[in-house]
């Protein structure tokens, strides 16, 4: 039972974080609060992917003794370096997340210019001139 918790508790924590973000996107009425919830949701997914790459007893994926030892080929022990592929994909995902954040904030600013409020229910009840 304890081994099950030690092996799986991180996934449960990420799901809790993701559901906090989902609740922020659905339940909050303010537009900036919705954007905050979207940011939390995205980073929970990125956290999940980075945690897939972990290996017990592995070090960071930068090869040791790679330069400065002549030309002999060093044998790389794959199990002692953590998996680099999810890191690359999530590096892309972080930058895309920030660009979506920028577009969402631009739309929020335009809504504020037009309706003079950011609350969703006030915008929905606005009489169209």
């Amino acid at each position: 039972m304890l081994e099950l918790i030690a092996g799986k508790y991180n996934y449960w924590m990420y799901i809790v974080l993701m559901m906090i973000g989902l609740y922020g996107m659905m339940g909050k009425r303010n537009l900036i609060k919705k954007v905050v919830g979207m940011s939390i949701f995205q980073s929970a997914i990125i956290l999940f992917y980075v945690s897939i790459a972990c290996k017990k007893g592995g070090t960071i994926p930068i090869l040791e003794h790679a330069h400065g030892h002549g030309h002999e080929e060093h044998i790389v022990h794959v199990a002692s370096y953590i998996n680099p592929l999810p890191h690359v994909l999530m590096l892309t995902a972080i930058v895309v997340a920030v660009s979506t954040l920028g577009v969402a904030l631009a739309v929020a600013i335009t809504v504020y210019r037009r309706y003079n409020t950011l609350e969703e229910d006030e915008i929905l009840g606005f009489k169209n001139e």
């Binding site: 980075v50 790459a53 972990c54 070090t59 953590i82 590096l91 972080i94 930058v95």
Partner: peptide
């Protein structure tokens, strides 16, 4: 152990 992701997050996000 994801150092590249960490400094991208610290600078960008």
């Amino acid at each position: 152990g994801a150092v590249d992701v960490a400094f991208t997050e610290a600078s960008v996000s």
